[in-house]
């Protein structure tokens, strides 16, 4: 009984991912026709590498959204984590210590979010929005308008290195895709997170430790932002106070395009990967065809609407059939 349920769930998941992969492939086909430069190993590696940063951030966020929550502070989190990691690295010369601090700061911010949301029962939207301002303020104060740059080559490999011709961040992306998929689909923790999002009251009654699980997802989201900040640092070789600002809404958009529902309980980490790829392909295509990047917010908006519209239709269709 349980295994058939699982197979049904898997099939549904494959179907939603399938639609999205088809959409991503369609974009690829169009771009192949429009630009000779698109279908080259170099460019595809490019797309994957650019998508990896967005995915790392969006994967943690996906878990939060699965619980019907939201984390608006991830962008600000990247900024502070990167700046602290950078200054520790400059100060001590130790890449390892800097990296540990970066992830540690991310985790701390995530924990704080989790405490506000789970223990104080604040609306996630507002608690993390307040956190966004607090974290920005600390970052601005800490950096005082300066730029930190020039990190050890060993550390920089994390962002700009290659292994067997594939960029290191792409490996990171697939490692965390596997981890995320395993965690959310194959562990009790994962099942409980879905349960909280689907029906919090029912989850509580069936003995899910809601406070602990909520703190866990916000902490994971924070730590992933910390990790993403390290990849950013390693790629850019520099950091300033405002680097995170441009990330929050694209990360949410990636999760939504990937089929994660803001109502909670529906969505997958692998879907988020496809979402991140679609967003990256759009930018890549615009650059290859040298289309003015001013079109980007508009196109992103349309894609988000289309993706969620499509999801809503299919879900309604399924419910009607039941």
């Amino acid at each position: 009984m349980k295994s058939t349920l699982r197979i049904a769930a898997l099939a549904a998941e494959l179907k939603t991912i399938g639609y999205r992969l088809a959409a991503a492939l369609a974009i690829c086909v169009v771009l192949t026709f429009l630009s000779d430069a698109f279908l080259t190993t170099n460019n595809l590696m490019n797309v994957l590498r650019q998508a990896s940063l967005l995915f790392l951030l969006a994967s943690g966020l996906t878990l939060v959204i699965l619980t019907a929550g939201l984390d608006l502070s991830v962008g600000a989190n990247i900024g502070l984590s990167a700046c602290i990691a950078a200054s520790i690295m400059k100060l001590t010369g130790s890449a390892l210590l800097g990296a540990a601090c970066g992830v540690g700061i991310g985790l701390t911010i995530g924990l704080a979010n989790g405490l506000l949301v789970a223990l104080m029962r604040m609306p996630p939207f507002i608690a993390t929005y307040g956190m966004l301002w607090v974290v920005h303020g600390i970052t601005y104060w800490f950096m005082a308008g300066t730029t930190l740059y020039g990190f050890p080559p060993a550390f920089r490999a994390l962002g700009s290195g290659y292994f067997l011709g594939v960029p290191i961040p792409v490996y990171l992306m697939f490692v965390f895709l596997t981890l995320g998929a395993f965690f959310s689909q194959r562990t009790t923790y994962g099942q409980e997170i879905y349960a909280i999002g689907a029906n919090r009251e029912a989850a509580r009654l069936s003995g899910v430790p809601i406070v602990k699980r909520l703190i866990l997802v916000y902490a994971v989201s924070g730590a992933m932002a910390g990790l993403a900040s390290l990849v950013f640092l390693a790629r850019m070789n520099s950091a300033e106070g405002d680097i995170g600002e441009a990330f929050t809404l694209p990360a949410i958009a990636a999760a939504l395009i990937g089929g994660t529902s803001l109502f909670g309980g529906i969505g997958t980490v692998s879907g988020t990967l496809v979402g991140a790829l679609i967003l990256t392909l759009v930018l890549n295509g615009m650059n290859l065809l040298t289309i003015d990047a001013s079109w980007q917010p508009l196109v992103t908006g349309v894609i988000v609407l289309l993706a969620v519209f499509f999801d809503t239709l299919t879900r309604r269709g399924e419910e009607a059939r039941k």
């Binding site: 630009s35 490019n46 590498r49 650019q50 950013f232 850019m236 930018l283 650059n287 290859l288």
Partner: peptide, 16 residues
């Protein structure tokens, strides 16, 4: 005027 955007735009332009 953004670092990361410049990097990504450049990566893409280098392909064309």
């Amino acid at each position: 005027y953004q670092r990361l955007q410049a990097l990504q735009v450049m990566e893409n332009l280098m392909q064309t």
